[in-house]
């Protein structure tokens, strides 16, 4: 198998996902099949080929370091599931 159950669980943890047992089994099969298919890339000789991360070449897009119009604090917080005194509220971080 291209990807093991333990690897799926390990990666899911990195991605902050909880998977149910049935989903893990399903993903092992489906993702394994996809990765096997992706292996066809190994047929291509890429020795010395530079990688592309962006199709259109642009050098750095600089702008002047000046304050610009920005979102009002209340508006930025408007969609927060929980907020207090102009801040986002998060659950307990340190136990």
């Amino acid at each position: 198998m291209k990807i093991t159950k333990d690897e799926v669980i390990y990666v899911a943890n990195l991605a902050r996902l909880d998977l149910e047992e049935a989903a893990i089994e399903k993903f092992v099969g489906q993702i394994g099949k996809i990765l096997e298919y992706v292996d066809k890339l190994n047929q291509v000789d890429t020795q010395g080929i530079r990688p592309t991360s962006h199709a259109i070449f642009l050098s750095n897009a600089f702008r002047e370091d000046k304050e610009q119009e920005h979102l009002d604090r209340e508006l930025a917080l408007a969609n927060a599931p929980e907020k207090e005194a102009g801040n986002f509220v998060v659950p307990k971080v340190i136990g």
């Binding site: 902050r16 969609n79 927060a80 599931p81 929980e82 986002f88 659950p91 307990k92 971080v93 136990g95």
Partner: peptide, 23 residues
Amino acid sequence: GIKYGVRDRAQDELMSMYRRTRS
């Protein structure tokens, strides 16, 4: 689950909140 969108409110610890919210 912090800045916008839906949060799983049943979790009172950060890591489990992330995981349940996203799952």
